[in-house]
Amino acid sequence: MRVVTLAGPPSSGKSAVTIKAIASLKQKGVTVGVVKFDSLSTQDQLLYEKQGVAVTTGLSGNLCPDHFFVSNVEESLAWGVENGFDLLVIESAGLCNRCAPHIQGVLAICVIDNLSGVNTPKKIGPMLKMADIVVITKGDIVSQAEREVFAHRVRQVNTNATILNVNGLTGQGGDELGRLLQGAPETTSVAGKLLRFSLPAALCSYCLGQRRIGTDFQMGNVKKMAFS
């Protein structure tokens, strides 16, 4: 089974481009399964089902979404193998821009959109910088100049990625993305594999459910800002 992790800021068009790529793969007889990770709720399960794509959703609820992802990724692969998919897409939102679900030896895709502004590529961490493929969406609604500047800024922070423009509405570029997904390495298990980058450090009193504000209530991994 080929496996890809696909991540990007909320509403960047992850599911839309995935659906377009899957539509093109289906025509070639490739079977695809999707595992969708989100935090509170998602409508994407319906979106995928409408397209006849096998999908499982995982909601992290009150847990850190990325830690939740790592704790369940092995089982995601097992589900994919059990169902005999040719390709498994594991989709998650990079909620704090510091985390990345990308795994060594697994094709890593980051989806970002032109509307997020030309300074955004700098603000996104390993999710973008360590991706193998960067998909840029919503190119149809910004000017040609902005598209060029945006792509250039992506290239600056990730000099080696394959950059691809995909339109999640019209599907332009979806066929090409599908082709790239088919180049993902074969994997049947991720147990023992390494994340490409450590997730953000946590475990302070607030991780454990503290609600009261104030220095007296802060314990564990706490960092203070500098004010000048």
């Binding site: 032109n114 509307l115 502004g117 030309v118 149809d140 609604i141 910004v142 000017s143 040609q144 902005e146 060029e148």
Partner: peptide, 12 residues
């Protein structure tokens, strides 16, 4: 290909 589409906006 550079595309000058009809429904273009500046977002900056």
């Amino acid at each position: 290909v550079a595309q000058l589409s009809q429904n273009m906006n500046f977002v900056m």
